[in-house]
Design a protein around this nucleic acid. Structure first.
Lengths: 129, 129
DNA sequence: TTGACAATTTGCCATTTGGCAAATTATAAT
DNA sequence: ATTATAATTTGCCAAATGGCAAATTGTCAA
């Protein structure tokens, strides 16, 4: 029905991040790679059975994925979500979920890279002033 | 698929108990009475969208009904387990705090960069074996 | 470059969902 | 009993899902 084409994008982003090929995900889940591909580019809308099968291998929480797909009403906020809100800032749940799959030292390396890029952008590195 | 499920029987029992006729439930949910009837006697298997629409009027909790239908794994996480874990991973609080202060699109850009680095690293591993 | 091989996309089609209208069955009132 | 009306079931069909095989595109080594 092409209800929500952003679901496919989210699924694809997650698959590439894991990382997996369509064929690998296909053998893990029993869903054909062609069907998975169509889902990712929004040409097909996954049934509940399909959605359930791909949740695990992609590292999605089933309830969250079903909510993203519009199959379940938005869940009451969990403790996990409270944990990631801080001060005035809010951490995007998708970002949080993806990063949480990395080892903590990788997570911190990511932060270091970000701070480097920010300082470059502001022209505050030693050699540039 | 005519999966031999007692789901239809459970739904019918609830509807009669409420009590509602098929037509009344139909007007409340927007699902045709004929379809609802076939679901109750197991001739059709309700999609997630249909299941979601009938949950409320019948007094079912959505998650419970989805679990009964085999769409969700038997019931989930206690509050204790929910903490800061996403799909088995854990997000470092410091990382969470720092990232939360960036705009969401920057947060997502960070994820994209991580993805690029991982694919580069993957290529290096391949090369060295 | 070319050729081999992996990954993705497309064409086609069987199966299923779900709606509408007609047929059937249950329920009440006279 | 008969008739009217409500409730359910059945027949039929459009639309969507999802698999298989072929075609296409991407990638890498020689």
């Amino acid at each position: 029905m092409m209800t929500n084409n952003n679901l496919g994008a989210i699924i694809k982003q997650q698959r590439v991040m894991v990382p997996l090929t369509l064929q690998e995900l296909a053998t893990m889940t029993g869903i054909s790679p062609s069907h998975l591909g169509r889902i990712e580019r929004g040409e097909r809308f996954p049934s509940a059975h399909v959605l359930r099968k791909i949740a695990g291998p992609l590292g999605f929480d089933e309830n969250e994925l079903f909510t993203l797909a519009g199959y379940l009403s938005p869940q009451p906020p969990t403790i996990a979500e409270a944990e990631v809100s801080y001060g005035g800032g809010r951490l995007d749940p998708y970002v949080s979920r993806v990063l949480a799959q990395e080892p903590v030292d990788v997570q911190r390396a990511v932060i270091s890279i970000l701070s480097i890029l920010k300082s470059i952008a502001k022209g505050m590195t030693k050699e540039s002033r």
